[in-house]
Design a protein around this nucleic acid. Sequence first.
DNA 1: AATTGTTTAATTGTTTACAAAAGACCAGTG
DNA 2: CACTGGTCTTTTGTAAACAATTAAACAATT
Lengths: 204, 204
Amino acid sequence: MAVTRTTKILTVKDQIADQIRSDIISGDLLPNTKLNEKELAERFGLSRGPIRDVILQLTKEGLLISKNNCGASVNCILEPKLQKLMIKLRREIEVFALEQIKDKLTERDFNALDNILIALQEALENEDYTAVTKIDISFHHYIIEKAGGDELVNIWYPYVMRMRLNYKRIVNTEQCVNEHRAILNALREGNIAQAIKSTKANIK
Amino acid sequence: MAVTRTTKILTVKDQIADQIRSDIISGDLLPNTKLNEKELAERFGLSRGPIRDVILQLTKEGLLISKNNCGASVNCILEPKLQKLMIKLRREIEVFALEQIKDKLTERDFNALDNILIALQEALENEDYTAVTKIDISFHHYIIEKAGGDELVNIWYPYVMRMRLNYKRIVNTEQCVNEHRAILNALREGNIAQAIKSTKANIK
DNA sequence: AATTGTTTAATTGTTTACAAAAGACCAGTG
DNA sequence: CACTGGTCTTTTGTAAACAATTAAACAATT
């Protein structure tokens, strides 16, 4: 059998959600910006129904904050203590994931992760920092999903999103790709301890 | 000013969500049971719109699992390793909460928690185990909310719900109320270390 | 007999129209 | 001047009709 390229099918709602997430990450939508259902519906050429679903979803992820009968707005950054807690918890989830996939990674997985890093490098060269952030997330997402499936992704995702809301910019562009390469290399060598160490260094 | 009794206003959706959560906790809705939007709408005398919102919300909480165009069904119990991870993470959140509220609790709070325990005792005597579970959760909820507001509640809630899905029954009825009383007593005495110890013992 | 293709029923996804709540504005009053 | 009280507008919440997708039952073919 030839190599099967898995093209992921995205629902309309997923695409809208992705777009709004990008807008928030990129800074186009600043904290406290109010999201108007009607406007969003017109922007995406849809009715308010699906938009409401997306807003509810992003609210659960912590990116938006909703009040009854008052709509949703972009959430603010966390207070430092909560921020620290979330970093700690996210680290533990990622460490758990690494321990789980220790012996499960195939050559196919390494290739997939390699490709992600290539895309990351490219986005960095293009200075497309929104793309950088999304690709960065997708690297971690791949590992989390492999380790614990959707269940684990679902509890992991809110932490990532909230952290991204706090630090909008990738400060150290080179460091970013190097850190991820370190993780991947350690995984390739089967050196989980090092992979964990590198991951902890990357999550901050 | 007289004592202001705070009666919480619940939206329609919150009430429906609560009801479905109860049905799952009580065992009326077993894992893999499919939820039909139309049936639910008729049962609650609503249209499908709000029902869809509730389903999406419960899916994000991990109680339901949804597939595109195929509806939602009650989620299964977690595999042991994920279960252990979630217990660990929930403990850390609750410990964090206790450390935060150390000096913030007023007499009003102690009374509120006392009342919760009285209700817990009563539910136990009536052998209404669904109520027991809900009141149990509300005790912890009170502390989490006090410590970190909705932000913290939002990341905490999924863990509680998923754990409840795993152990449906309160095994040790007396132990349950005793454990919570130990937490409250420690808080009253300002003995946070003991409160943390008791909380850790309670979350399992 | 097993598998593939087609039709049909049921269910979800989306749109549109309507009801209710919140916020803005402005006049009137102390 | 501040403040209450009302109307008006805007926005969200809900309902009901329509479109699209899926699953199942059945027929046809190899």
